[in-house]
């Protein structure tokens, strides 16, 4: 019953990264004042845009726009990026604001991460619609329902990261 308006829901999800871009632009502008509080945000906010894209798409796809889907989108991207980073460069400790280099330029790296964020966001939203009302056995029931979604998304994120780093990236190179 949620199939018909997939594009519409994707579009609604894409509004969030657009809002984040506006906020990013605001802080870039404010950082011209030279005040550290603004430049601290302006220097790092860009690195979080893929994460916001992932969260936004997850929320958009989720049939009831629940916050649990947002959390899943966030967890999915974080785990993906960490798993990916550890394979591309084992020495680098994972940090969103210091993305591991892919190719020669930073903008190339970020473009790649944006594409990956689309994937994690869509996967998180899809998993939400699939699992938001899952019933687990009594002794695990706490982790059932919506709480299950970020958990299962972390597993998908993990293997998505490994897959892209090991196989997709190797072929691109």
């Amino acid at each position: 019953m949620h199939q018909d308006h997939l594009f519409k829901r994707l579009a609604a999800g894409l509004v969030y990264p657009v809002l984040a871009l506006i906020i990013y632009a605001l802080f870039l502008l404010l950082s011209l004042t030279g005040f550290g509080g603004f430049s601290g945000v302006a220097n790092t906010f860009g690195y979080f845009l893929p994460l916001i894209l992932s969260v936004g798409l997850a929320v958009g796809i989720a049939h009831d726009k629940s916050g649990a889907a947002a959390l899943a989108g966030c967890v999915g991207y974080l785990v993906f990026a960490a798993s990916f980073t550890s394979i591309v460069n084992a020495k680098l400790a994972f940090d969103v604001t210091m993305p591991v280099k892919i190719g020669a330029t930073l903008s190339g790296t970020m473009t790649f991460l944006f594409i990956c964020a689309c994937l994690t966001g869509i996967v998180a939203g899809w998993l939400y619609n699939k699992f938001y009302n899952i019933h687990l056995p009594d002794w695990l029931a706490f982790f059932g329902g919506r709480r299950f979604v970020p958990i299962i998304t972390s597993v998908y994120g993990l293997f998505l990261g490994a897959f892209i780093a090991q196989i997709v990236l190797a072929h691109i190179k």
Binding site: L78, A82, S86, I87, A90, F94, A162, A165
Partner: peptide, 12 residues
């Protein structure tokens, strides 16, 4: 390592 790193990302 990549499984370990994925778990750590959530704690971080």
């Amino acid at each position: 390592p990549f499984i370990n790193a994925g778990g750590n990302a959530i704690f971080t």
